[in-house]
Design a protein around this nucleic acid. Structure first.
Lengths: 111, 111
DNA sequence: TTACTATTTGGCAATATTGCCAAATAGTAA
DNA sequence: TTACTATTTGGCAATATTGCCAAATAGTAA
């Protein structure tokens, strides 16, 4: 695989990496219903404000969210809402894995 | 946020994390066209066989792929093909980010 | 058994991520 | 100016990820 192919894959991986954290998934799902400021998100998540701010900057650098300053607050909003479509498929993975587990358990019991 | 909500988010994050690596994205896209054995994938990717094997086990533990043994080979295949839908949206993020960059450059030039 | 191929696992060093505290920055209002 | 609120940034320790080499495992065939 050549350099060019790797950097295209790196660019995609960077975006998925930005999403691959529980707090950031929470934020993205919360922004589905509209913009939120850092303080409001911090209250919901229960991590330090600075930690939430850093998570938001990870999402921003990835291009998933943008922010709008108003007074002393920053309001973050989803830039590319199709990101929300991911979670349905993620649930499918979880369900399909649970099904497999159940089949294994059943096979054991039937012996 | 309570424990239960966190573990639901952790479960989702684990699946996105499994996808968030260039070599694993390559593998998932390659498996779109059908199962592949470790050796064939190693040849395409250019990493050590043991590294590719570990990447495959990450995808397998996440529930994204499964494997089928035949002789001394293991053939891996996609378990939940909706994962492939992610990449279209990931491209949208990349395009939307590029558009934003262009607008910034244009705004500078017009001064 | 031996020789061969394919894959997986153990271990480890290099690197990246996370979350906190403390401090810095910036806007508002008196 | 000072006091206040909201957010971001720097730094650091704890933890997780990655990729290699070497060794282990397992199937096939003589």
């Amino acid at each position: 695989m050549d350099e060019k192919q790797w950097s295209a894959l790196d660019a995609r991986a960077a975006i998925l990496k930005a999403l691959a954290h529980p707090a950031r998934i929470f934020i993205v799902e919360k922004l589905k219903d509209g913009e939120q400021c850092v303080n409001a998100l911090t209250g919901m998540i229960g991590l330090d404000t600075s930690t939430v701010s850093k998570h938001l900057s990870v999402l921003k650098n990835a291009g998933i969210v943008s922010d709008r300053k108003a007074g002393t607050s920053s309001y973050y909003f989803l830039r590319v809402p199709c990101i929300l479509d991911f979670f349905g498929c993620v649930e499918q993975v979880i369900i399909s894995r649970a099904d497999q587990q159940n089949r294994i358990v059943l096979a054991c019991k039937q012996r």
